[in-house]
Design a protein around this nucleic acid. Structure first.
Lengths: 387, 387
DNA sequence: CACGATCCTGCAAAGGTTTGCAATGAAGTA
DNA sequence: TACTTCATTGCAAACCTTTGCAGGATCGTG
């Protein structure tokens, strides 16, 4: 139908010049038809558009990027795609980006800080900004890299940089309070990667909550934030004598339950387990996992928005050199904290100090605890702070 | 440390020209230092490299792409990132690409054929090739798009295009034979998306195997290839009276098990269930899922290799117009079929026609069936066909 | 010494697009 | 009529890199 391809099946690139020739105008007019339509006569515009459509013209983004300094791409650096926590985030970020005519480079670092740094360098020239999701490198390195390319950080607090955070502190507190309420007094926290901000936050909040509730918190870790990371500490958990565990994430919680099962320890009858993230999987295991739901989709969308907003006012490879940017206006540093929610399912049950309010409440009825509201209620709280 | 950034924290792009000035050579020498090092005097080379390092120079890929016609990027179009089948594939593809100095654009289509087409168009100019994973659009459209940009198709057979296939036919046959061997005669196939090649292959092979083994196969579907897609048909499965089910994928199988459980139907005691994919999750549910393991990682790597191999010989935006490409050498059409393996776990058990060889063999012992070999043995069979 | 070969380097064009500036013409104003 | 304003379009430089071609230097050989 179109003249885009020769009959031989080899693509013939059609440029702005071809469209210009076909519609009898100068290339600059064609360019403007696409990038500044209001500057061209409506009649001309429709003619040019018709020709472009006809020829199957699509602007060459590399050329456009070369001169404008903006690629209309963003980078997404992920600690581990195989961790089910991330795909919903990627999906949301990608959708939001596409919605604003941006494309997304995804890179997986395998939880390796060195790979993170390399990838930022590699991506810097091809993208207008980078989303750093759960980075494992040092804050100072992140700050340094942020001079090379606009950065938005997810699940990490870096002063001076825009961040999207999930309130895992609040989540951990809810979880500990829930466990204490069930009558648990000896609780273990299954730590995640040492360099994880989330990990530190959880630990801080969980300690405080345990202290406040008169429970003792044992910290086990650091561990790999995976299912094997969880199952590996099952023996240790049993020996520690705790009756409840809060795990760094759902994957570890599930692994732990598996591991305990293999040791003949039953969940939640003997040990209660709480995860974090509310990945799809947590609804499908048996017992269904009690967990702190994190708003991953909202995080992805918000992060993209923040990046683009930051980007729009600074056309990077600009012509006039930066003498005019005296004020620190350029970088608006906002930090957004998203709320988390405890979702109570079947992996938590009464502990040794449970008050027998309803004496021996049906311990094996179907679905003992039911979440109050609908599935995953998540509310986003924007909290912008000017730099 | 470097002169890359001003103290103000705003990136100052450093180009080949800056390096040339600093090292006292012409820009073309700098260029050659990076793209054809053997053409430049070793002494000069080290000096240039030192200056480049010092200034923090990184080649601008957009400019390079503009002139060479090669972006060193590839596109990865995925039906649904949230489906745990894909992340390992993405991860493998991404690793392989990076290993060859390529970057990966990932796009999610939400199982929408229209989105697929749009994304191919959008990506075409920014990448050297596209991997189409489990596409839902028509074969003819795929062929048409392949004229715009080199394509490699995963999980779909398109004549004339390089494809990476997983032998789900073989997998389905093994599964059916396994079920028949256990004494099942009424078996249901839970179909996936109508436009899925995998779906058709499974159906074909499962029918044949059932017929050959004297069992009756009921096809239920099409269904959404998700956990809800599986749980939604639980009632239908129960009514159909079959004693075993082969599901389109693990997600559906798990959903079905959940759904059956809710109806009070026990797996594997009353109904046996087999999935496909061997996603991580399938080892973590209870009962652990018997499933057909697909080599997703190998598929990702192979697909990238095939794409790059195809690409290397055709520098797209070449200067000399294509008069010289008379022969069909340009497109080497290979199809690779990767083997699948049945992994027997706990979701399958004896059926109504089981021979009581060992009378009433321990129906609830821990881990009744064990996979024979190691985890997921996968062998790749290359099968190159010249066009 | 003359000649050719070899190695290295510089020159300049090219790639597709954007954009400041200038030119054109039409319309409006004094 | 003369002048200004405005809308529309063309011109050409610029973005950064690659690469064919040619020039220069050095060296070996006849």
């Amino acid at each position: 139908m179109t003249a885009t391809t020769s009959d031989e099946g080899v693509a013939v690139p059609v440029t702005i010049r071809d469209v210009a020739r076909a519609s009898g105008v100068h290339i600059s007019t064609v360019s403007r038809t696409f990038s500044a339509p209001h500057l061209v006569n409506p009649e001309t515009r429709v003619r040019v558009l018709a020709c472009a459509e006809d020829l199957g013209y699509r602007p060459n983004r590399a050329a456009r990027a070369l001169i404008t300094g903006r690629t209309h791409n963003i980078g997404l650096i992920i600690a581990d795609i195989a961790n089910p926590f991330f795909p919903p985030l990627i999906k949301a970020a990608e959708g939001q980006a596409r919605h604003r005519d941006y494309h997304v480079f995804v890179a997986d670092t395998n939880e390796d800080p060195t790979a993170e740094e390399e990838l930022v360098h590699a991506l810097a020239k091809q993208v207008d900004g980078v989303l750093l999701c759960s980075p494992r490198m040092s804050n100072s390195l992140i700050e340094q890299l942020s001079r090379e390319v606009p950065l938005v950080v997810v699940n990490r607090q870096v002063t001076g940089l825009p961040c999207v955070l999930m309130d895992v502190g609040q989540g951990a507190r809810s979880a500990i309070e829930h466990l204490i309420g069930l009558g648990h007094r000896g609780i273990a926290l299954l730590g995640g990667p040492r360099s994880s901000w989330t990990n530190r936050e959880m630990r801080r909040a969980a300690s405080a909550a345990a202290r406040a509730g008169g429970a003792e918190l044992t910290v086990l870790g650091p561990n790999a934030p995976t299912e094997v990371g969880g199952s590996a500490v099952a023996e240790q958990v049993r020996r520690s004598g705790v009756s409840a565990v809060l795990a760094y994430n759902d994957l570890m919680a599930i692994g732990l339950i598996e591991g305990l099962d293999a040791l003949g320890v039953r969940v939640p009858q003997e040990v209660s387990v709480v995860g974090v993230d509310d990945i799809t999987l947590s609804r499908l295991t048996r017992p269904k996992l009690t967990t702190v739901a994190t708003p991953t989709g909202a995080a992805g969308r918000t992060a993209v928005d923040m990046l683009l907003q930051q980007d729009i006012e600074s056309p990077r490879g600009a012509r006039g050199s930066g003498a005019g940017t005296a004020l620190g206006v350029r970088r608006t540093t906002a930090q957004v904290m998203l709320q988390t929610d405890l979702v109570i399912r079947d992996s938590t049950g009464p502990g040794p100090y449970a008050r027998p309010a309803r004496p021996l409440a049906a311990p094996r009825g179907p679905d003992p605890h039911c979440p109050a509201g609908p599935g995953i209620p998540t509310a986003a709280t924007g909290d912008a702070v000017a730099s």
